[in-house]
Simulated scan of single mutants.
Amino acid sequence: MVLNQNTIKSQALSKETLKVVDAFNALNTDEKLALLYFVYEKMGESITPAAPTATDPELAPKLLGDFYELSDDRQLAIMREIVNRENTEYSHAYGALKQNNQLMVWFAWAQAMGDTVVDLPENYQATQAINDALAQVEKLDFEGQISVLRTVAENMGYTDVQTIPSQAETGKTPSL
């Protein structure tokens, strides 16, 4: 099986966590961005942060350096491009990262919102769908939360790298 930009990748997700991923995927682009912000805002309270030692910020200079110098409108456009998996420079930079570094990008952006990263509009009201999805994330244990966040993060950004079919999928053994 070759994954394309429309294929949802998941790793060892339970029925409960798949339900949360489905709720996220049902949101529109801006709702997804808001939900990510709210998830990271609640880290350390009802949501457990991933280990920061599992990331390497130097691997994302475009996303964690150049990005901060852009206008609010351009930053928001880039976030939307990443969520929508568009074939753009920043979406490629994001898609080239491993899951932990993708999560680190969203965490860093959420931490800088309102300072060096575009913030939610002052009068922003979360939709019921966002509130419901956030409540579902909060109910999960640490492993479930990280599983959902990794899946969500991995299914954003653009990459043209194709996965290599496994022996189970092809029925063939690898050869030189």
Rank of each mutant, 00 (worst) to 15 (best):
I82R: 10
L63H: 06
A34H: 15
I8Y: 10
L13T: 09
S10W: 06
P61G: 03
S147H: 14
Q111L: 12
Y37P: 01
V118N: 12
E154H: 11
K15G: 12
T170D: 01
G157L: 07
A12F: 13
T17Q: 13
L33A: 07
P121F: 03
L140P: 05
D66S: 12
M79R: 07
E31A: 02
M156K: 06
W109E: 02
S91L: 05
M79L: 09
G114S: 07
F38M: 12
P165G: 04
Q125L: 08
E41N: 13
E138T: 06
P174W: 14
S10M: 10
L140G: 12
L63M: 07
I8G: 06
I47S: 11
A168C: 02
L97K: 01
W106Y: 13
Y158T: 03
L120V: 14
L103M: 15
A12K: 13
I130G: 02
T48V: 12
A23R: 12
G171P: 13
Q5D: 12
Q125V: 12
G157H: 01
F107T: 03
N131Y: 00
A133W: 01
L64P: 06
Q75S: 05
E58T: 14
D141P: 13
D141N: 15
V161Q: 14
E41H: 09
V21C: 04
I146L: 14
D56C: 01
N28V: 01
S71V: 09
V105D: 04
V2C: 00
A135L: 00
D119L: 05
A129Q: 11
L176Y: 11
Q111A: 14
E86A: 10
S14A: 09
T88V: 10
A60E: 03
D132P: 02
L149F: 04
T127P: 06
F24I: 09
T151M: 03
F67I: 00
Y40D: 11
A12E: 15
V20K: 04
N155K: 08
G65N: 02
M1N: 06
T53Q: 08
P165M: 02
P174H: 09
Q5T: 13
L97Q: 04
A168G: 13
M79V: 00
S175L: 03
Q167D: 06
T17M: 03
P174A: 10
T48G: 00
L3V: 09
V137C: 04
S46K: 15
N84T: 11
D56K: 12
M156N: 13
Y94C: 14
D115R: 03
D66K: 14
N155S: 05
P61V: 01
A77R: 06
D22R: 14
I82L: 11
S46I: 05
M104D: 08
E58N: 13
P165R: 06
E89S: 15
L76D: 11
D115A: 02
F142V: 13
N101E: 13
E58V: 14
Q102C: 05
I47R: 10
Q167L: 00
I47Y: 11
N84M: 15
S147D: 15
K139N: 09
Q11M: 08
T29H: 07
L149A: 06
S14F: 07
L97P: 04
